[in-house]
């Protein structure tokens, strides 16, 4: 029962985060492009396409998490997205570049705090990807959590 509640909570929290962060990026594509260029990792030619598509990936993941469709696949995709974002933040921080995180707002400087916070966000995604609730993934019958 507790695992079931945790599963449901993780879905809701992750969905809320993805929908919110996707929304603020769609609302300010140029600001998000500025944040991406601030990482000094991507070529200028890729910045605008990334700023266009990345937020929609977040929105789609948020919606899929909410409706619970193919939850384990969606959770794995969410883990991949969060892990890649975390990698970018960590690289930028240790290169000593003063850049905005672009996570929950556009005036949030990358720091150990923001990296720690994003690591915490990865935890519910990992939990969803690894937990085996009945009907939450493909393949043969899975043990049901009591």
């Amino acid at each position: 029962m507790i695992l079931r509640i945790l599963h449901w909570l993780s879905r809701c929290i992750l969905a809320g985060i993805f929908l919110y962060t996707g929304y603020i990026k769609i609302r300010s594509p140029l600001q998000f492009a500025a944040v991406l260029s601030g990482y000094q990792l991507f070529p200028d030619s890729l910045i605008l396409p990334m700023a266009d598509y990345f937020p929609w990936i977040e929105i789609v993941l948020g919606v899929l998490l909410l409706i619970g469709w193919k939850i384990r696949y969606v959770a794995v995709a969410a883990c991949a997205l969060l892990a890649s974002f975390l990698t970018v933040l960590t690289i930028t921080y240790f290169r000593g570049i003063e850049a905005n995180c672009g996570c929950f707002s556009f005036e949030d400087r990358i720091s150990l705090l923001t990296i720690g916070r994003d690591t915490l966000i990865l935890l519910p995604a990992l939990f969803l990807a690894l937990s085996r609730l009945r009907g939450s993934g493909p393949g043969p019958a899975r043990p049901e959590i009591a």
């Binding site: 300010s28 594509p29 140029l30 600001q31 492009a33 500025a34 200028d44 605008l48």
Partner: peptide, 26 residues
């Protein structure tokens, strides 16, 4: 603040010229 077609966007900090150019061109 960049405004066009009845929409306005607030941007904090600078943007490299190639990025702003690409955005304006669109």
């Amino acid at each position: 603040f960049l405004s066009s077609r009845g929409k306005e966007e607030r941007v904090v900090g600078g943007v490299p010229y190639p990025v702003l150019k690409g955005y304006i061109d669109r």
